[in-house]
Nucleic acid binder design. Sequence first.
DNA 1: TCCCTTCATCGACGTCCGTCGATGACTGAC
DNA 2: GTCAGTCATCGACGGACGTCGATGAAGGGA
Lengths: 138, 138
Amino acid sequence: MSISTPVNARWHAGAVATSTLPIAAAPGRAACCAPLTREPLSAQDAATLARTLKAIADPARLRLLSLVAAHEGGEACVCDLVEPLGLSQPTVSHHLKVLVDAGLLTRDKRGVWAYYAVVPETLNALSAVLATPAGPVR
Amino acid sequence: MSISTPVNARWHAGAVATSTLPIAAAPGRAACCAPLTREPLSAQDAATLARTLKAIADPARLRLLSLVAAHEGGEACVCDLVEPLGLSQPTVSHHLKVLVDAGLLTRDKRGVWAYYAVVPETLNALSAVLATPAGPVR
DNA sequence: TCCCTTCATCGACGTCCGTCGATGACTGAC
DNA sequence: GTCAGTCATCGACGGACGTCGATGAAGGGA
């Protein structure tokens, strides 16, 4: 282990997501709705939002997101993440899959390695839903 | 049931939280840390953040938050929430307790009724943590 | 061609979580 | 004092979730 080749072995190219696009489980938007403190959420919107929030409501996945984002080039492969997380490789792969399915990460397979990168749009959409528009009711 | 007196029986006063203050489980800050896409999260910060996020990562609790926020005066009692949610009263009470413990709601007991109101600071703190600061890596 | 490395999937296990009905504490009106 | 109403707590049940070791698919170098 600890062969951190991919960290240095990164080649020229820009990280263009090949296969998995930000689909966010429900085909379409990721965060779904209005500021949440503005008007009552429909049952369906609440379910959609909750599914995305559940994806980041986990210590391991939060650390994965921040590790990937802070990694050089804004992307990282599984082998870069297993050690700092302190979890087994299958578990890390599992969490990464959850994040990709939620549209929070993209997966780019290059050769033997799978590179993951954050999708800022999804995070920003979540952020926008949670923000309270100035004074909600006074 | 469906005696919606408290909706109309609301008296003058401003909603001053009496007992439960925004403590957010861990005494101190609610959201805990830097923008999350800025630098790797420590294991402890991740656990703290995840605990707060788990509180809102549930359809019922998301709807509770939006129902309370959108309710007249920015506050609502349990009896106002049971029917629109379609869950039993004990379940609603349970969810409200989770939200209060996470610092997302305040509880104000007035007479027989318990009034809940959102804590915008906690939501905004969460929003700030999730937001990606312009270009994360370039 | 063979072997090593990376990574995803599978099956299993234990724990946490959402939900309910029943019950009890508490308040206010008659 | 009694009764009606609001709400929190309790105990129980079923399903979802995080974690692991084992296994297999796929790429690249010698």
